[in-house]
Design a protein around this nucleic acid. Sequence first.
DNA 1: ATGGTCGTGTGACGA
Length: 254
Amino acid sequence: MKITSWNVNSIKARTEHVIEYLNTEKPDVLMIQELKGLEFPSDQFEGTGYKTYAVGQKAYNGVAVFSTHEINVIKGKLDGDDEDEQARYIEADINGVRMINIYLPNGNPAPGPKYDYKLQWMERLFKRLKTLCDDDIPFLIGGDFNVIPKGEDCHAPKDWEGDALFRAETHAAFRKLINLGLTDAFRAIDTRAENYTFWDYQAGAWQRNNGIRIDHFLLSPVIADRLQDCRINKTPRGWDRPSDHTPIEVIIAA
DNA sequence: ATGGTCGTGTGACGA
């Protein structure tokens, strides 16, 4: 089973790219982030044969799931704050596996209220994942985590000092997730440096491979035992008018 | 180099 995560930076602007990706890579499941609109253009994808489920919001955020298998939605928002209206979370059972798609808050500028929200969101996520662990529900979580886990996950660590994606509190919150017993699927497979999932549109970042690894798959132990491969597919980042992120793909034994 | 580039929705704001 092949599962992909991809921050598309607007579903309206990237509809053709998503269709091209589905048709050529044929993932079982595609999780996307940053829809940037309230309405999800599901009619545009009818020809692909994929089922879809989306949680949208006007202008910002938004997440959706495409699947060849039935999507049994468990939650469309993260527990822990009833006032939180931001569209950043989908939890669903697909092909016998609990799958979570997240768009974790960016948190800049830090420190400040946006960073406080990020850390609170990460603590809420920790509580949810701990519940799944305590209940012995195997799961896979993918998405744009907006976390550069370590120095080797960015081209120029000095550029990221103090940034919400690289601060000590962010690293501690990410390690707290990992310490539930989760496996960073990409790092379990590929230990080489200079492997990134995001390159800024500005200053020739893509051409200079000045990137960061912030899109991840974390696997609970039972799913980690089924891990066969994990790779970053750089092709879509080279397409015309691309997203600033590229897809990350994980293969789980059937 | 104190800018640079996108997307939303039409003026800033977010990334």
